[in-house]
Nucleic acid binder design. Structure first.
Lengths: 225, 225
DNA sequence: ACAAAAGTGTTCTCGTTACACCCATGT
DNA sequence: ACATGGGTGTAACGAGAACACTTTTGT
């Protein structure tokens, strides 16, 4: 059997959560969109293969990646029995823009407007979206989608986008700051408002320590019926 | 590459959480303990393969199973490059006892006293234990470990075992009953106490509906630092 | 002056916790 | 009668939610 990896790559442009897809330039299904993927090499772990594939497309290293699920239904690849281990990764979309490789025809799509994709990639994408929401509710992973310096309104709009909810900014900032994961900077971001919003940076050390703490960002999650 | 599945099979005997291992009767590592596994057949999905493997060992069908993670480090199998998709499953240990297959030398081990196992199976086991705890904190999956009729003290001792914590029985019963997932029976279990404890059954319909609701069974989970 | 977004405090509600006594029954 | 485990109610606490006004500054 052939063994591949596929990467579900998320980015956030300040407005919407986006997904990076490549246009497939080989048969089968040439011309359709696809997740970036590749075969696992004989001497390679899955993690390495996924990191390699992501690097090849984006030029980025040390990216947040996590194994999502293995897909292996017979017939998922119409040509040959191929199993694929899907990974989801979160990147700072700005870094990508600088380092884009032109070897592939890649494009960002809002997660709400995914074009037709090959094989079972739509299932992978749905599963990844779901996992992102679940994980982000309890782990501070969304910072991985933001640049090093960001503002609270930016962070809030990211949470709002991902949960399709509008959050109260007073409650939001209190909750986020109470984690003491953020360090306020002296300078402000002044492009989106006249007054300007203070930048914050992530305290990487605390971030690593607290990563496994439950954070409970979803409002009303315990009221869900 | 070879593609296999391995099953991490949990059971609960009323005292401790246990894991079902088989004694390996082929080389390499003959005589050591191992998860029950098998190769994925050409026409088989992973889920089917795992269900088949589990059925072969236990005789059980329609068991709670979930894909855990794919393991594929080169060298994990010293003979040949083999990737394995690990599944974790929860079974009613009593059903197993009735239907045990004698084809394999299988034995239950308390999860706290796992003997040496082959390859990377110990990693799989650790990951499965972790996932069980995380998942059970928000989803009512632990019922899968109990017989159809069970008492609140039994259920509580299961939670206590899994989280290594002692829970207040008043708070516990209030919380569990507030989900209205349980239906009180008329009869009592009278073996472990003189007074006897009422049996409950799971309301399967509500169980399926509420499965994805967050339930928050871990006390103080949000206070973890 | 005014429009537009940032920033900040308090009250109320409701879920979580801590805690102690009575009940049923077999010996 | 007593020992053993089953079953229940209440008060205090704390986290989350709801909510409105002031500040800054570019135009």
């Amino acid at each position: 059997m052939l063994v591949a990896v596929d990467c579900i790559i998320f980015g956030f442009d300040g407005q919407a959560l986006k997904l990076l897809l490549v246009k497939r330039h080989i048969e089968p299904e040439k011309g359709k969109w696809s997740l970036m993927g590749g075969f696992v090499q004989p001497d390679e772990s899955f993690d390495n293969a996924a990191a390699r594939v992501l690097h090849k497309l984006t030029g980025l290293e040390d990216v947040y990646m996590e194994q999502l699920c293995a897909f292996g239904n017979p017939g998922r690849d119409p040509i040959e029995r191929t199993v694929s281990v899907a990974f989801f990764s979160l990147i700072d979309i700005n870094k990508y823009i600088q380092q884009i490789s032109h070897e592939y025809h890649a494009e960002w799509f809002p997660v709400k407007e995914i074009p037709p994709v090959i094989f079972d990639h739509i299932q992978m994408i749905e599963m990844a979206k779901d996992k992102l929401r679940t994980k982000a509710a309890f782990h501070p992973i969304l910072f991985e989608l933001l640049p090093e310096k960001f503002t609270l309104p930016q962070l809030q709009s990211l949470y709002e986008g991902i949960y399709d909810a509008s959050l109260d900014k007073r409650n939001f900032s209190r909750k986020i700051l109470s984690t003491s994961l953020l360090v306020k900077q002296k300078d402000k971001e002044k492009e989106t408002s006249k007054r300007g919003a203070f930048y914050y940076k992530l305290d990487r050390k605390k971030y690593l320590n607290k990563f496994n703490a439950f954070l409970n960002f979803i409002p009303n999650h315990h009221k869900l019926k």
